[in-house]
Simulated assay, not measured.
Amino acid sequence: MDYKKLKKDIIAYSISIGIDKIGFASSDPFIEMKNLLLRQQSLGYQSGFEEKDIDKRTDPALIFDGPRSIIAIALAYPSKMKDAPRSKRGERRGIFCRASWGTDYHVLVREKLEQLAAYIDSRVSEARFKLMVDTGELVDRAVAERAGIGWSGKNCAIITPEFGSYVYLGEMITNLPFEPDEPMHDQCGECTKCIDICPTGALVQGGQLNAQRCIAFLTQTKGFLPDEFRGKIGNRLYGCDTCQTICPKNKGMDFHVHPEMEPDPEVVKPLLQPLLQISNREFKEKYGKISGSWRGKKPIQRNAILALAHFKEETAVCELIEVMQKDVRPEIRGTAAWAIGKIGGEDAKSALIKAQSVEQDTAVLLEIEKGLEFFTVQDGV
């Protein structure tokens, strides 16, 4: 088999099916990434969503029999929304991050990988593959960097010269010995804008992220959001783009080459108040196709409540009181109580006092107390 020719043919085929960038890497262990992950683990910086076995995350031979190379791909996604609705008093809106616009990228990237694998299989009958998109064992960023897709930026994203960091990544391990491409050298230079602007200081240094402080991670948690982050989440419902939008390498980067990635403005920038009472069925019907729905409606609803508090949206107080009184989930009742106090007003204060006399859950009672403390500050006590 002429693998040099096959590699050229694969590249040509990848372009024909809409893959925006492709690269080839060796299947050697990712030693530098392993050391970084071990440090992350020792510092308690991991999110908990990752594969827990660091050896599996960094050694292809532990998850695939006889790996010879890895093929990495990237798909460019849009950074700007056409006809984005405006958020205004009485009609406040939240926002999903750009990586959650359009059809779930896990589906889109996997489809491209499956097409690519089918093509290679048609050329080499003994070919074997293991496909991965985000939830696989390997670190997508490490593979993409080694394959020359882009360099690993200080914001912990792969940055490509052509598309900036607005790319979805995927890869396949294979038993075929493709010649590796040259990794791309770092082009961040002395720039630290992403580190400087991070709202929670999650970017501890270039290329190292404390996921426990990252807003993108925090928006996906299901419990009470820690107090120190409630004022920083803004109107984010899922994810955070701050370290991408500030990046000079992303200036002017906006690609609309995949129709499936185009955002529905009413889905990715939705009205907040309707989210408070949305049913599971309604949530699945409206949001089920985007990646930001993967944790269910609970985190989104909690974040919507915090966003209403961020806006101090007085028109939402009545609905928030109903949530505080009737929702069966303590995290949602409690967050509503905190938000009611944050927004303020006489109706808010009396509702909190009434709730305090009937609420049985200790965690919710604590949130009610926090809500009432806002009035103490307002009254100058």
Rank of each mutant, 00 (worst) to 15 (best):
H258N: 05
P259R: 05
P259S: 11
E260I: 09
M261N: 02
E262F: 08
P263K: 09
P265W: 01
V268Y: 04
V268L: 04
L275P: 07
I278S: 04
I278E: 03
S279H: 02
R281C: 02
F283A: 05
E285A: 06
Y287I: 04
K289S: 15
I290C: 10
I290E: 02
I290D: 01
S291T: 08
S291L: 13
G292E: 00
G292K: 00
G296L: 12
G296H: 11
K297F: 01
K297G: 02
I300L: 13
Q301R: 15
R302P: 01
N303D: 10
L306C: 04
A307S: 11
L308E: 13
L308F: 03
F311K: 12
F311W: 15
F311M: 09
E314Q: 13
E314V: 08
E314A: 15
A316Y: 14
C318R: 13
C318K: 13
L320T: 03
E322I: 00
Q325P: 00
Q325A: 09
V328M: 02
R329I: 09
P330N: 05
P330S: 05
A336Q: 10
A336W: 10
I340Q: 09
I340E: 11
K342N: 15
K342T: 11
G344K: 10
G345Y: 14
E346S: 05
S350D: 03
A351N: 06
L352Q: 05
L352G: 12
L352A: 07
L352F: 05
I353E: 12
I353N: 12
I353Q: 15
